[in-house]
Design a protein around this nucleic acid. Structure first.
Lengths: 224, 224
DNA sequence: CCAAAAGTGTTGGGCTTACACCCATGG
DNA sequence: CCATGGGTGTAAGCCCAACACTTTTGG
């Protein structure tokens, strides 16, 4: 690119967008990975991603990757960090804008499978990944844990109707520690972000659970 | 760039690094700006910045900009956000990695002046800026206010020796509200990050103030 | 009738907040 | 001696953490 009279030409680089998509499964916090068939890192698992197009903002690029490569729309996503070590891609200079996104678990199952070449991997048992994607996932996980404490971001992982026990176990999976049931319920209800429905959920030979819904879907409130 | 067999070539863009450098002056929180002489935005104030070189990570680029354009070393700096609206630079596609940095006020004065074309501007009375730099400063300011509450980042704004009243007024400038003197002192001392020296500071016709220092300079602790 | 998860209040301790006076110095 | 900012402790209230039993259902 030529930047005007007297200016040295700026080096040009390719910009990638890499998505850390989390969900919570029965086995805990999981991230969506795609098996690469191309060099470099053929055969390795990597984050879904793509190159930023001309005339596309990073946020738009992230949405496009979610739509085209994963086939989902309307996920919560935010910019995470930009990774630009000069040697991070053996093909040449690629700066990657990392995003992190959250998917309700009821939308997660259809995505994994041979058809897409994608699968959910528990974050605690990741095989070696291509590029610096393990670093990116680590940072995304830190961010998720931190935001759990001071925002209502966890609600972005829930289906439209959910029980308080399900919500609690989402918190417990991500934080890695058990919470007190009564204190958790008092706290989450006091936030004013969810409301009880008159429906219940029968899940076994025990008392049915009340179903709740998010009052303002898509909104993430910063709390306290 | 050619990315391998079968791959479409990725669009190439220039990467800028823009620095939001804060200090605290008598008139409150201030940001270092540079007056542009070149098109576009000639005559406007803008953030100090530069283009990322080949073989340079964003963090290294940020340090180079601080050293070469501002002439300072060893500032606290962290990545802030990456700004990539396709129309943000009229010259063409430029993606900017924003950083935010903190400078102790005793190192701030020599930097401003005609020689460098830079000046400290109070964040509350900014003239219209070039590019999207007002947005970048706004986000940096939000980050600073947020981190004040849960980290020891404010210590990066202090000179080697400082009084507790000075530290309190730094907090008050950034938060924009007054704090209780006794409670502030109890709190900041309880963090265990600063220690009293046996020196004092005489600043007028009143009792001299004890000088403190940071125990582990450069370290930013996340608290609670 | 039994097993299993859902649902529900109270109390004690710790932390945060509010608040006022004496001290040391320079002029 | 007066003006100025430096320095110090206590009490009340709020918030958080700990804790156990009853309810409802399916088999």
């Amino acid at each position: 690119m030529h930047l005007g009279p007297g200016a040295e030409p700026a080096p040009l680089v390719a910009i990638a967008v890499d998505m850390v998509i989390f969900t919570v499964t029965e086995r805990g916090l999981a991230v969506l990975l795609r098996r690469r068939h191309e060099a470099p890192f053929a055969g390795y698992w990597t984050l879904p991603g793509g190159f930023l197009s001309d005339h596309e903002s990073p946020e738009a690029g992230a949405e496009r990757v979610l739509a085209d490569k994963i086939g989902v729309h309307g996920l919560y996503a935010e910019q995470l960090y930009t990774f630009g070590r000069p040697d991070r891609d053996p093909r040449g200079r690629v700066v990657s804008i990392g995003f992190f996104a959250l998917m309700p678990w009821n939308r997660a199952a259809p995505l994994a499978g041979e058809a897409h070449g994608t699968a959910w991997h528990s974050v605690d048992t990741l095989a070696p990944l291509g590029f610096d994607h393990a670093t990116i996932i680590g940072m995304a996980r830190q961010r998720l844990v931190a935001k759990l404490a001071y925002s209502t971001i966890a609600l972005q992982l829930m289906p439209q109707r959910f029980t308080l026990s399900q919500l609690q176990s989402v918190y417990e999976s991500i934080m890695g520690e058990a919470l007190d049931k009564r204190n958790f319920r008092k706290w989450v209800c006091s936030l004013g972000c969810i409301e009880a429905t008159d429906e219940t959920y029968r899940a076994g030979s025990h008392r049915p659970a009340r179903l709740y819904r998010v009052k303002h879907p898509g909104e993430v409130r910063i709390i306290k």
